[in-house]
């Protein structure tokens, strides 16, 4: 109900006001959305992560755009007419936004696949780019494809054994590649668990794999060589899983293609 009301308000305000021309995004996940949806010249600043090719494949599109550090006070001087935040901001930032009469649109992290579409639509609407939003959602759905009937057990695996919840949006996305995410408590798998109950498919992300870290060393543990031959490891880009936004659909499509 509240969501519908908010959406209706957004539609109304979007229709009433002219399209914003000094748009600021403070979060990697909203960076991706505005880089895909905004018209040329609409963007005034995105977060520094949105311009980092370690984080998003859209970084080349951000070339030349000013970056911010993700905090509201760092962009006030740009006099933005629209600010995107990803999943709420702290109380101080909210009060600052009210005092300065800034138009802030919050884009919460998706809890399910419908949320991904809803986020695309709400950002497109706030930008006055509804048509671009509709097109991106159609593209997203095409890439995501239907849920195949046959499923294999799988584990999304990042550095240090980080993985996805069995009922979260990550698991729902994997289902579109015909994969059923294993239930691992606390979002982290130990090598012992992995060896005792190996999945049929390990979806290993390449996220920041070139940077030395303890998490990356974990992925090179010699015990992983003892995984049974029935377990297949597929390496994926990994970057789209941070936000699980529109870019995750092509990642799923690539994964599905490699599994067939």
């Amino acid at each position: 109900m509240m969501r519908a009301l908010a959406a209706a308000l957004l539609v109304w305000s979007g229709a009433a006001a002219a399209a914003p021309t000094r748009v600021v995004s403070l979060n990697l996940c909203t960076d991706e959305l505005v880089l895909l949806l905004a018209a040329p010249g609409q963007l005034a600043s995105i977060s520094f992560l949105g311009a980092d090719s370690n984080e998003t494949a859209l970084a080349p599109r951000a070339r030349g755009l000013p970056t911010n550090n993700g905090r509201l006070d760092s962009v006030v001087a740009l006099a933005p007419d629209l600010v995107f935040t990803g999943g709420g901001s702290d109380r101080y930032a909210r009060e600052l936004a009210i005092r300065l009469k800034l138009h802030v649109v919050d884009v919460p992290p998706p809890q399910n696949i419908a949320d991904i579409r809803r986020n695309i639509a709400s950002v497109a609407n706030a930008l006055g780019r509804d048509a671009a939003g509709t097109a991106l959602i159609a593209q997203f759905d095409t890439a995501l494809g239907p849920t195949p009937a046959a499923t294999r057990s799988a584990l999304l695996l990042g550095g240090g054994g980080t993985t996805a919840g069995a009922d979260g949006v990550g698991a729902q996305l994997l289902r579109h590649a015909g994969l059923m995410q294993q239930d691992v408590p606390a979002g982290q798998v130990s090598l012992e668990q992995l060896l005792a109950e190996p999945p049929q498919v390990i979806v290993q992300t390449k996220y920041r794999s070139s940077q030395a870290s303890l998490g990356q060393s974990w992925l090179q543990h010699p015990a992983l060589r003892s995984l049974p031959p029935t377990t297949r490891t597929i390496t994926v880009d990994g970057r789209p899983w941070t936000c699980m936004g529109p870019l995750v659909a092509p990642e799923i499509a690539r994964l599905r293609a490699r599994l067939q």
């Binding site: 090598l191 012992e192 060896l195 005792a196 190996p198 543990h221 010699p222 015990a223 003892s226 049974p228």
Partner: peptide
């Protein structure tokens, strides 16, 4: 093989 790896390597 997995049991051996758990015992010896972990």
């Amino acid at each position: 093989e997995a049991a051996r790896a758990i015992l010896i390597e972990l």
